[in-house]
Structures are given as structure tokens and as C-alpha cells.
């Protein structure tokens, strides 16, 4: 068996990439160290007619049972272990308004930061995905997610976490997420920069159709899913109290203090130990 030079360099490159990849993956909070832009989806409540074709397409693509529960205005249908997305109706002064509900694909996701095995993972393309072979089922992602997105199969001996992955496999193949492909106009796929520009354009062009605010532009540090709406977002079940800073920033100061404590405390203890040692030799206390 012989290795030619080309194979050798290939292997070397792959190893190098793994190391770099590991380091980059070590800090899912930082998205600025590479130039790739996150993909996202713009959802337009003013256009959505609540046909729920996206729900059905999503279920079909991901091998889930077809959603059969009826949509009713004012009733929040939550996502579940068998439903990655739902469309809900709300009665407002603008009539019935629909809102789609799924993973927000945050720029700096709390779930991925919480995950101690990197099973929850912010891909460089933008989708936040869940990787079964890494997950140990601790459910810390569920504790941390401000939108309560990850759903856990409590009834299974080999449980999975169910959540929208923005059809990551399709995006890698260059295809659109299946919900966007199914939908007429209410869902719009692109890089986050494009989405925000498009949303601004719509607000500027048809100011009577929209409130001047994009949900997800700043919430929790920015999300991959962005929402346009004809009425204030809190009337549509959105949590507008969520902080503007990303969720990982909440644990940052604690995590930063760890190396300092790990070095300073033992030094202090060693010093104290040395200081009290002489005293003990003198008193000769046998116990």
C-alpha cells in the first residue's frame, strides 16, 4: 500500500480542516469569523391566507403524520413531537391574521449554546439542526430555548428531539425549504441581509399593509425567521418582552469567570495551606 503525494496532502488538509472546524464550532456564539451569511425565511402575515399547505408539505417531507386538528382563531396550536410547524389564526382589527410557528433559527441560539455535546448545532448555512448521534437527551436545550421550540419524545425508549431544521438537507442540495417551495408568496427564502432588505421594501412600498417593525430583526440577537405583520406583534402571540441581546450573552460572564476561578482559587488555597502549616507543627495536635 502506498500513499501518493496528492492523497497525503488531501488527508493533511482534511485533518487541518477538522481542527479549524472544531475550534470554530467551539463558539457557536460567534458568527462573525467567517464571511458566509446565514440563510433565513421571511414570513409575511399580511399575505398568508392560512391554507396550511406548508404544514402538510412539512409533515410529508419529514415522515410525520398529516396534521388533522382544525385551526381556530385564538387557539394556539403548539408544535409537538409530530408537528414541526403550525399555522395559527388570530382575530384582530385587520380581520383574521395568520401566524406561522416553528423554530426561529436564532443567529446565536440558546439551545446550541446550552448543548454540551453540540447535538444542537448552528450550521454555517443558518439552520439550527439537531444531530441524533450526539444527543444524550438532557433537555437543557428545552430549558434554555426562549421560544420553547425543541420537543422531546417522552413516550419513547429511544427518544428524539423534534424541531424544524429549515430543511437543511434540501438547502445543502441547493433546493428551497419545502415550506417555501409549497407556499405562494407568504414565505420568502434568502440570506438574512436580503430578507431584511425585502421586508423594508415591502413596508416602504405598502405602508398601509404593515406595521413598521420586523419581528426577529433584533429579538434575542436576531433570528433566521423574520416576521412581517399588519398588527402589533404582541396581538399575534409573539413574546415582545424577550431581550434584544442574544441568550448566550446571559451565561457569558459566568463562563468567562471559570478559568479565573480555576486558577485563582487553588493558588489562594495553596497559600493559605502554606501559611497555616507552621502553626500546626508547633502545636503538635495529634488527632
Amino acid at each position: 500500500m502506498s500513499i501518493n503525494r496528492r492523497d497525503f496532502f488531501k488527508a493533511l488538509g482534511a485533518t487541518g480542516m477538522t481542527i479549524i472546524g472544531l475550534n470554530a464550532a467551539g463558539s457557536p456564539g460567534s458568527n462573525s469569523d467567517d464571511d458566509t451569511e446565514f440563510y433565513g425565511i421571511l414570513y409575511d402575515s399580511s399575505i398568508c391566507i392560512g391554507c396550511r399547505a406548508c404544514e402538510k408539505a412539512c409533515a410529508e417531507t419529514h415522515g410525520l403524520p398529516e396534521p388533522e386538528d382544525e385551526m381556530e382563531a385564538g387557539v394556539q396550536r403548539k408544535t409537538s413531537v409530530t408537528q414541526r410547524c403550525t399555522v395559527n389564526a388570530f382575530d384582530t382589527e385587520e380581520g383574521e391574521v395568520y401566524v406561522r410557528n416553528q423554530c426561529m433559527h436564532c443567529n446565536e441560539p440558546a439551545c446550541a449554546t446550552a448543548c454540551l455535546t453540540q447535538a444542537m448545532y448552528k450550521t454555517k448555512e443558518g439552520p439550527v439542526i439537531w444531530r441524533e448521534e450526539k444527543c444524550m437527551g438532557c433537555r437543557y436545550c428545552m430549558v434554555s430555548c426562549p421560544f420553547d421550540v425543541p420537543k422531546f419524545e417522552y413516550e419513547s425508549a429511544n427518544p428524539i428531539i423534534q424541531k424544524c431544521d429549515m430543511c437543511y438537507d434540501r438547502i445543502k442540495e441547493g433546493e428551497l425549504p419545502v415550506c417555501v417551495e409549497t407556499c405562494g408568496d407568504a414565505l420568502y427564502f434568502g440570506t438574512r441581509r436580503e430578507l431584511i432588505a425585502e421586508a423594508r421594501r415591502r413596508i416602504a412600498e405598502w405602508p398601509e399593509m404593515y406595521i413598521d417593525s420586523i419581528y426577529g430583526e433584533h429579538t434575542v440577537g436576531g433570528t433566521g425567521y423574520l416576521y412581517l405583520s399588519p398588527v402589533p406583534h404582541n396581538e399575534l402571540g409573539f413574546d415582545i418582552k424577550l431581550q434584544k441581546e442574544s441568550y448566550p450573552s446571559l451565561t457569558k460572564s459566568f463562563l468567562y469567570s471559570v478559568p479565573a476561578v480555576d486558577v485563582l482559587v487553588p493558588s489562594l488555597l495553596l497559600g493559605l495551606h502554606a501559611a497555616t502549616k507552621n502553626k500546626q507543627n508547633k502545636t503538635e495536635n495529634h488527632d
Binding site: P28, T117, C135, L255
Partner: peptide, 28 residues
């Protein structure tokens, strides 16, 4: 803690695996 884990057989991932989630408080 192990009883509470959904997939306890993956518990070794954060210990010996290549899946260090170093930004996680739980990892710490």
C-alpha cells in the same frame, strides 16, 4: 442524572467524544 437522560448511552460524548460543547454551562 443518568436516569433522567433520554439517551444515556451517549453520555460519553461530552467526556471522551469529539463533541465538546464548551460554551455550555452544563458541560462545565
Amino acid at each position: 442524572l443518568v436516569l433522567d437522560l433520554g439517551k444515556p448511552w451517549n453520555i460519553f460524548n461530552p467526556v471522551i467524544g469529539n463533541n465538546y460543547g464548551v460554551s455550555s454551562v452544563l458541560f462545565l
